[in-house]
Amino acid sequence: MAPRVDLAERRDRITALGVVAPPPIHITTPTFDGSLATLFSCVRDHKVDLLGVPLFPICEAYFSYMLNTEMRDLDEAAAALVALSYLLERKAWLLLPVPDPEPDFDEPMDAIEPSIQEFSYAIDSLRLWYEERSMLFFRSPEAGPDPYELPYTLANVSVGDLARAFERLLKRASPEPMEPLSKPKRSLQDQMQAVLLAVGTEWKTLTQLVTEPFTRTEAVYWFLALLELVRLGKVSARVVGDDVEFGREDLADQTTPHGEFDPGH
């Protein structure tokens, strides 16, 4: 605890704002001559335009004070630093570019404040034009499906067949192991390569393709990779009984089972 005498002395140096007054650092600049505390008060009360006061001599005076006083009073040093920081921040804000002044109107009182009502006619016009434009069709990707995407037929392999095959696979999946929050990202491209290797020269069901144990996430990756390969025409599918079998695309050419899915043709 500080000695009683120190506290009494310090009370004298506490300003009306409840903080210790900055030390008597004298500043001499072309536009201001006085103490740091006076400059601080004048700037705060808008009595001095800080833009006209160079900060370099002030910083120099502060560093000189820091080097010469051997840091006997930390509170005073801190107060000086606070005052200097305040001046630096104020000057930084003042130096930011300001927008160009608004042009003077001939009759400023007649200028209408911007409001959304001002745009109502424009909004109605835009809506009308949007409707008119929607009646026109251009050669553009937004006008419809990509014209260069080869269509493929699902034959009698329905979306429901695929969904049921996927459901059967998910039922066999193991619970996800507890892992750290940052899971490594999996690439569907890598998974497609793995699936392409697994889809051999004979027809296999999804259950036969994916060997246990596997998690639900892995099952989803397998299924998505298979769908993408089917879309790209690298894997074919056919319905056998109530299940869907997958095989390499060339298998579809060799055999002609009913219900074969033949992409790209």
Binding site: Q117, E118, F119, Y121, A122, S125, W129, Y130, R133
Partner: peptide, 19 residues
């Protein structure tokens, strides 16, 4: 493109008077 405008000059003038 979506509003079939050639350039922004084709936008209708804004209302200058309040209703």
């Amino acid at each position: 493109h979506q509003f079939k405008l050639n350039d922004l000059k084709e936008l209708p003038p804004l209302e200058t008077e309040m209703p």
